[in-house]
Amino acid sequence: MNSEKILEIRDLHTSFFTDKGVVRAVNGVDLEIGPGQIVGLVGESGCGKSMTARSVMGLVRFPGKIESGSIRLNGKELTGLTEKELRSLCGDEVSMIFQEPMTSLNPVLRVGRQVQEAVLVHNQSISRKDARKQVIDMFERVGIPEPEQRYNCYPHELSGGLRQRVMIAMAMICRPRLLIADEPTTALDVTIETQILNLMQQLCRETQMSVLIITHNLGIVAEICDYVYVMYAGRIVEHAPVFELFDHPAHPYTRGLMASIPQIGRNPEYLHTIPGVVPNLLHLGEGCAFAGRCDCAVDRCSRELPEMVHVREDHASRCFIISDAEFS
């Protein structure tokens, strides 16, 4: 990876201070995104991938809090910024699209107005008329048919795919350097999913924008990502370029995920699953969080936390097995 980074997260800890105890949703995450790169962040539900993204956008809700760590956007530190300073970056330099296009748009405002708002808030000098024109141009670019008419539609009058296009238009309208997409296609059907992914890829190429795409779907990762981070129970357990990861998954969890992808031609009556469930983040032990579900776990795994070890250049994994193999 080159030295200039769009997003650089170092040892990020985001925790929720609940009545039952502290939930460490993000527990020391390191993550980097280069310019124009599409990076995937993969993991099961509740592993902290959305919270990592929300930490960047300053959208962590009470009782959650960024405890420590650093988030740098274009070299600028985001933690410790005031709400106002952070808001001026959000939507402008970094923007986000969400999982549910059905609920992510305000039901009582026209979609055009909602996108126009993003233009107006970051560009005080622009007239409403020009802002409207920008929105309609953007609608056209993200493939919304009849953009002039759609501008005045309410969200409930649009299909799921169109709504997600509106969300993308809203996120892209200020030409951000980084787009965070939190499960952007999970709520859409498969044909629309491909369209949306292609659109994001195309926009990314055209504008040299970086994308952090959060998903539990390895198919999406294979389709559009350049680089992948695998997350488990609040920690990154493996990261590698996409082909490297698919060819040589190092962490037992990543291998389990790969094996769980159903494939045509294999025995269709048997679907591979990873046994057990994600551990409760309230009661995380000392050792590797995956130890309880891991086929290759040894005594040490439940006592000590393995360090991140480089398997190859650009490919690292948090597992003793690899480090042992590496040393031997």
């Binding site: 956008m57 808001r87 001026s88 959000c90 992510s104 305000n106 708002e117 808030v121």
Partner: peptide, 8 residues
């Protein structure tokens, strides 16, 4: 969240 992510 969308509105805040927009920068409002």
């Amino acid at each position: 969240d969308t509105a805040r992510a927009k920068g409002l």
